[in-house]
Design a protein around this nucleic acid. Structure first.
Lengths: 244, 244
DNA sequence: CATCTACTGTGAATAGAATCACAGCCGTAG
DNA sequence: CTACGGCTGTGATTCTATTCACAGTAGATG
């Protein structure tokens, strides 16, 4: 029966209610699982077992299963996980199953690069509108998106129904900008500006400091090839710790 | 005596040898400490106590002290930490006390944005050279950096004495590129391409998937304002958990 | 010079994340 | 129809990271 094809997939239950307590690390990995599942789906793979998928994303099978368990029952015991279904389910958990509008603040070099970054659309995010303070930029259209003056953010955000923002502006007055943006109904902010800001209650900020990643790599590379480092994300450990 | 000014600062001992085992999370925080210390130094602050600095960066004083302890003794008991000295020491630990050359692969929108990103120079990284496969780009100069064809990466990397790389190219053939780059003496790679690659032994890769951060934020924002989430990095917890 | 203050560095305790290991089950094969 | 193999989901365990709490001490004060 066709039903058997999808048996065991009761993670279709509202993800918002299922979980007790999910660590951010789990969420980060979910995002990776989804990416790999999408590739597998494109390659025509229908089902996959936890140890295969785990190998592809570089985690242990136990961890993969544990991560999924936070959200319900995903797998069909004998057949493994259905690639397509599981991808969709994770999208639903992440809230990216339907496209969300995002606002960009700061149309400098980085901002313009982000505007033409194809990865966002592919993953369910659409930069709908841009803001800047520079009068040379306000009013112009960048990669199909009109640039408004920050002064009018409240009306414009409401008009475009935006609840997420990306910051790529100058550091000056960043905290004030964050406060205004949060006040205007934005609940999630991705901050590329290397300046520490704090979020008003109910709003999430995620820092992305590019240079900081390089600093980390610099440390790792200089530490005599990571001899005294508790190896973790990078690819190194394959040599000893992993597969005995 | 002038010596008393800097007493207690024996973390000047070679950082490469001091530590036993440092977690990546500690290294990431070190980077933040350094950033804040630099701001403090610009503001003319000379000394600071662990609880003040901890508050500024958003960690507990105990964690800050523990992080530093991995690398030796930093503080002067009654005066706290010397802002300037400590910043320099962390730079030395991270290996960013003198500028390092970095190569960029892929001169698309993102690549060009990275070329003009001022944050790298400020933190001790200099993109010395760029590579691409597009014959329209090869030979041209972008933001002062000449673009070479990937075919010649071995010679060029040697010529510029580059040991770190940033990937911002197309996903096609990325693994092959990584293998070649590592073979050419690069030990650390920052990968912006949303495609999973594995590193040959002795080489570190750090993934930076921009859209993945947005997915995380989407999850957090949708989860009824994070009710069932083990709050961590984002700014939310300030409301309850932090300062009682 | 002696006393007092309060901050650092660190052993001990706790919380949290990853891994192990197995009970229970589904599909398959004979 | 029955027996088997092997995978998932999960309790128990181990390992790691964070926090607590205090001993020891540099400097300030009178």
């Amino acid at each position: 029966m066709s039903a058997s094809e999808q048996k065991g997939f009761d993670a279709t239950t509202p993800p918002q209610r299922a979980a007790k307590r999910v660590s951010l690390q789990t969420v980060e990995r979910l995002s990776v699982y989804r990416k790999v599942l999408e590739e597998l789906d494109r390659d025509g793979v229908e089902n996959i077992h936890s140890h295969q998928l785990a190998e592809l994303v570089g985690v242990t099978p136990a961890q993969l299963r544990r991560d999924l368990a936070s959200f319900g029952t995903f797998g069909n015991i004998a057949r493994g996980y259905n690639v397509y279904q599981m991808g969709r389910t994770i999208s639903r958990i992440l809230g990216t199953d339907e496209s969300q509008s995002v606002a960009l603040f700061g149309v400098g070099d980085l901002g313009r690069a982000l505007l033409s970054y194809r990865g966002f659309e592919e993953r369910g995010f659409h930069i709908a509108v841009a803001f800047d303070v520079d009068s040379e930029k306000v009013g112009r259209v960048f990669a199909g998106r009109r640039c408004y003056h920050v002064d009018h953010l409240e009306e414009v955000l409401r008009e475009f129904d935006v609840h997420m923002a990306i910051l790529a502006s100058r550091p000056e007055g960043l905290q004030a900008l964050v406060d205004r943006v949060c006040g205007a109904g934005v609940h999630a902010i991705l901050n590329f500006v290397p300046k520490r800001v704090s979020a008003p209650g109910g709003c999430f900020i995620e820092e992305t400091d590019i240079a900081s990643k390089l600093e980390m790599l610099s440390f790792l590379a200089r530490s005599e090839a990571g001899s005294h480092v508790a190896s973790d994300a990078p690819g190194e450990p394959a040599a000893e710790g992993m597969t005995a």
